[in-house]
């Protein structure tokens, strides 16, 4: 037990270190100075108040998509559909932000709720198909990603705008932007959504660990037969889990729509926020706290990467390689676990 807990913390840390080391080796081979490269990365993420604010801003939706994947996973489901759930959440938030005229204390919560609801519906569909017909959620969620992307583009072009590619800005009453947060971060795009994301992480922890809802959801994920024997409604719990997961991802869409951009544009491809969420959940060991830490790491790497070409002449692609390597090492945690046990034995 205790050993497991230590391993759960050690393995991601070792994976990150190995990823960074491997990245350094690649920089060396390609003729760059890894120390300068990482210094540029550091400066790009933490260099001043502005970059710090941007890092936090970039972390915000990643926390939520990470939660969306982790929550489903804790209840035995693979939510590959966070990407689509983000897109419909984004659309719903902006739509409400544009279409309604109301005071802020109604407008903003309504826009956020619309995003969560849209994401929840996008999770509900694969949930009900899995529960009632036994269709595997991985396939359905992947399909739902494409459906979300193309429907959203269609609505932006033909409903929200008159055949242009970007909507107007949402009403200020629906905006998450914060003059105060911008003020202390040299006018970065940091917004109140960061607090919402942290709050959502706390909600996930509470829901999973402390409520009968979480108790049922996890039980159904672990063992459907025993859950049925215990009198739980297996179908209901599968659907509920996917809907809650979808709601988290939908909120991530609201962060972009109401916080960072204030608009929605026609997308030529996926935002990748949802797919990064899979990596964040994996790195965070599917716990709420772990997801927050992993999302911060991803935010740092992605934001810091912007500085690497100008600061050290290292191409941004390299950062993607490092991130990929970290995920590779997390996924191959079995090897690290094996090495740790081996090392412990020899140390004796």
């Amino acid at each position: 037990m205790a050993r497991n807990r230590i391993f759960n913390i050690l393995i991601p840390i070792i994976s990150v270190l190995l990823g960074l080391i491997a990245g350094a080796i690649i920089m060396l081979i390609s003729g760059h100075n890894p120390i300068e490269g990482y210094r540029a990365l550091w400066n790009g993420a933490f260099g001043d108040a502005f970059t710090l604010g941007e890092t936090a801003r970039r972390t915000t939706p990643l926390i939520l998509t990470g939660l969306a994947v982790a929550f489903a996973f804790r209840t035995g489901l693979f939510n590959i559909g966070a990407e689509g759930q983000v897109i419909v959440g984004w659309l719903a938030a902006v739509w409400v932000g544009l279409a309604i005229d109301a005071p802020m204390y109604i407008h903003l919560p309504l826009a956020i709720a619309a995003a969560a609801l849209a994401g929840a519906i996008w999770g509900f569909v694969p949930g009900i198909l899995k529960a009632k017909l036994g269709v595997h959620e991985v396939i359905v969620t992947i399909m739902m990603n494409y459906i979300a992307l193309f429907i959203t583009n269609e609505i932006i072009r033909n409903v929200l705008t008159d055949h242009t590619t970007t909507t107007e800005a949402i009403a200020p009453t629906a905006s998450l932007a914060s003059e105060w947060l911008q003020g202390i971060t040299y006018f970065s795009r940091l917004h109140y959504g960061f607090l919402i994301a942290l709050f959502a992480a706390a909600v996930m922890w509470f829901l999973i660990q402390r409520t009968t809802i979480g108790y049922e959801l996890k039980a159904v994920g672990f063992n459907q037969h025993a859950s049925k024997y215990a009198g739980m409604n297996v179908s209901k719990n599968i659907i509920l889990s996917m809907a809650i997961a979808g709601a988290f991802a939908g909120l991530a869409g609201a962060m972009e729509g109401l916080g960072t951009y204030g608009t929605i544009s026609v997308m030529s491809g996926f935002t990748n926020l949802g797919f990064d969420g899979i990596a964040v959940a994996l790195l965070g060991a599917n716990t709420a706290f772990g997801v927050v830490l992993a999302a911060i790491l991803f935010g740092v790497l992605k934001e810091g990467a912007g500085e690497m070409p100008t600061g050290a002449g290292v191409p941004t692609e390299l950062v993607d390689i490092i991130i990929a390597l970290i995920i590779f090492f997390v996924a191959s945690s079995y090897i690290i676990r094996w090495a740790l046990i081996r090392f412990k034995k020899e140390g004796k």
Partner: peptide, 13 residues
């Protein structure tokens, strides 16, 4: 139940 692993317990609880 007849099968304690399948029905009687959630083994990961």
């Amino acid at each position: 139940p007849q099968d304690r692993h399948k029905y009687g317990l959630v083994l990961d609880y």
